[in-house]
């Protein structure tokens, strides 16, 4: 559906997006993640034809962005960050204006605006100036605007930023509902949001793609490592470190904290293990040989958050 090749954007000397390659399939909900200033918005702006790429190519269906930008814009609906709209217009007038520019005919226009008002919960604010609406309602007007022509591709830049938790849930529901038939690209820096709504996650950092895959594959493939947490009584950290270090496959041993329980100390230790084999048996065997009392042993999967931090920090 969307084919991005070596996409690069410079702002003067600053490289915002660096040689990005992406293929987005029809019906996918893709989440674009990254820290602030990673190039998310710039990438989306180029995809929607608002910014011209410095180099590289974007193809949507059979259209290329430099030749058929107008055709691509017809296929796309775009909700920019913090939904910039005309503040002095009434919500209804604005939606009608968008419908006109999107070339809906009279009949379609009326039914489409009514449908979107219902879908986005706009009925009670249709005759208020946009500038007087709350942030959540502005966002919804923006969403309705983006969906006006029933576009095949919907691009949203931080659709839930600045909304309260209830509104976030509502907007997510809307996204998931329309995501059944449409291709959706959203950018966000809220990880739980990406996890909750997206089929596929692309993490970018400093203009480069550092990870690309479903949440599941991202979690599994993260550097081929997993974590084991153990809690020990009657042990000292330096001896624990010495003993467990002899197990082949443990990459790192770290002390999380110590806890005072009566006269005894409880050590909470985190072991980073290579994913190639399950080391839990070997760890237990080792502990059995000592005087330590094993209170807890659990395998932890890396959360998206740790993956995100790992990937975006080292660059």
């Amino acid at each position: 559906m969307i084919h991005v090749q070596n996409l690069t954007k410079y702002y003067h000397d600053l490289c915002a997006v660096d040689q990005i390659n992406l293929d987005i399939q029809k019906g996918e909900i893709m989440g674009l993640l990254g820290p602030n200033g990673a190039g998310k918005t710039t990438t989306l702006r180029m995809l929607t034809g608002f910014l011209r790429p410095t180099s590289g190519n974007i193809r949507v269906k059979d259209y290329t962005i430099d030749k058929d930008a107008l055709e691509i814009k017809k296929l796309l609906g775009y909700l920019p960050e913090s939904a910039p709209l005309y503040h002095d217009m009434l919500a209804y007038d604005y939606l009608e204006y968008v419908a006109n520019i999107r070339e809906l005919d009279r009949e379609q226009k009326r039914s489409r605006i009514r449908h979107l008002a219902n879908l986005c919960g706009l009925n009670e604010v249709m005759h208020q100036p946009i500038g007087e609406l709350s942030k959540g309602f502005k966002q919804r007007v923006g969403l309705a605007q983006a969906m006006m022509s029933d576009p095949e591709i919907l691009v949203m830049d931080e659709p839930t930023s600045g909304l309260d938790p209830n509104q976030i849930v509502e907007i997510r529901d809307i996204i998931r509902q329309i995501g059944k038939e449409k291709t959706i690209i959203i950018s966000t820096h809220i990880l739980s949001e990406a996890e909750a709504t997206c089929d596929r996650i692309v993490i970018i950092s400093q203009g480069k793609i550092v990870a690309d895959g479903s949440t599941e594959t991202l979690k599994q493939s993260s550097r081929g490592e997993y974590l084991v947490g153990i809690s020990l009584q009657n042990a000292r950290f330096d001896s624990v470190k010495k003993e467990l270090h002899s197990i082949d496959g443990i990459v790192e041993i770290a002390l999380v904290n110590t806890e005072q329980a009566g006269e005894e100390n409880i050590l909470h230790v985190k072991l980073t293990c290579q994913a190639s084999k399950d080391l839990r048996g070997a760890i237990y065997g080792k502990i059995k040989e000592t005087e330590w009392i094993l209170l807890e042993l659990r395998q932890e999967t890396k959360t998206l958050e740790t993956i995100f931090r790992d990937l975006t920090k080292e660059n």
């Binding site: 702006r45 929607t48 034809g49 608002f50 107008l70 814009k73 017809k74 796309l76 775009y78 920019p80 913090s82 910039p84 709209l85 005309y86 503040h87 968008v98 520019i101 999107r102 070339e103 923006g142 605007q145």
Partner: peptide
């Protein structure tokens, strides 16, 4: 200033 230019130009207009 408002940024509405972004919405305007991503609609099919030249």
């Amino acid at each position: 200033n408002v940024g509405s230019y972004e919405t305007l130009l991503t609609m099919p207009v030249t």
